[in-house]
């Protein structure tokens, strides 16, 4: 626990993993959207330093590179927390109902239920993210495998994987947007800084995350 009324919420390893997933995910999405192809049509390739966005081979290279970082970081995240037996983000029984109570409390300015390290919504959002990312990794891995080994796959099956990858990409974008939109809610804003400096105000933790606070302060 720090001396200046802050407590550690996210250690450096967690923050680095989060930002590696976020930055590679952003690059993956950007290069992936460019496959459509859209950037040339909207003159993005005419901006300084952006010529590469309409070069499909370069786009593919960027996609492979960011996919490598993304997959490595996601697998690291899963195994790291599995080995440390850290499961605070796994949804629990009653999370859906609790989420509803939280939303209601926020809208009606009433008292929220006592939270653990994460809010019930965060656990549900995490599960949705995990499902989408797993589907993106599985479909993307399969497509890269096909490209690397040049094996034959029935075209209809291939199209299913491509369209699946595309669908989950849009879901991923939607989830990222909702993830960021969470900070429009004032009560969530103190958590934004924790992803940068890893710390949260002691008072905030005590008030909003009493169950977690009790554990870390004991």
């Amino acid at each position: 626990m720090s001396k200046n009324e802050h407590i550690v919420r996210h250690p450096l390893t967690v923050r680095l993993t989060h930002w590696l997933i976020a930055s590679s995910g952003l690059l993956l999405t950007f290069s992936g959207i460019g496959f459509m192809p859209l950037y040339g049509r909207f003159y993005l390739n005419e901006l300084p330093g952006m010529q590469w966005v309409s070069d499909f081979q370069t786009q593919m290279n960027v996609h492979y590179l960011s996919a490598a970082l993304f997959m490595a970081a996601c697998i690291f995240h899963v195994l790291y927390h599995l080995k440390r037996k850290e499961f605070a983000l796994i949804p629990r029984r009653g999370d859906v109902m609790e989420s509803w109570l939280i939303i209601k409390a926020m809208l009606c300015h009433k008292k929220e239920p006592a939270h653990d390290k994460f809010l019930a919504e965060q656990r549900i959002a995490y599960a949705a993210f995990a499902f989408t990312i797993a589907a993106l990794i599985v479909s993307g891995y399969f497509l890269a495998l096909k490209n690397s080994m040049s094996f034959f796959i029935a075209p209809e099956t291939l199209q299913l994987f491509i369209l699946g990858h595309l669908t989950f990409t849009f879901l991923f974008i939607l989830q990222v947007a909702l993830h960021l939109a969470a900070f429009l809610i004032k009560a969530n804003r103190p958590l934004l800084g924790t992803m940068f400096n890893g710390q949260v105000e002691r008072e905030y933790a005590e008030k909003r995350h009493p169950r977690w606070f009790k554990r870390v302060s004991s």
């Binding site: 390893t13 996919a67 996601c74 690291f76 899963v78 195994l79 440390r84 891995y141 690397s148």
Partner: peptide, 23 residues
């Protein structure tokens, strides 16, 4: 692109090694 895809496919190994090293 085949070769580049092959390299990307090895990335999960880095994640596994990293996770074991970090824990």
């Amino acid at each position: 692109q085949h070769r580049k895809a092959s390299v990307a496919l090895l990335a999960p190994i880095a994640g596994v090694i990293g996770a074991f090293a970090a824990t």
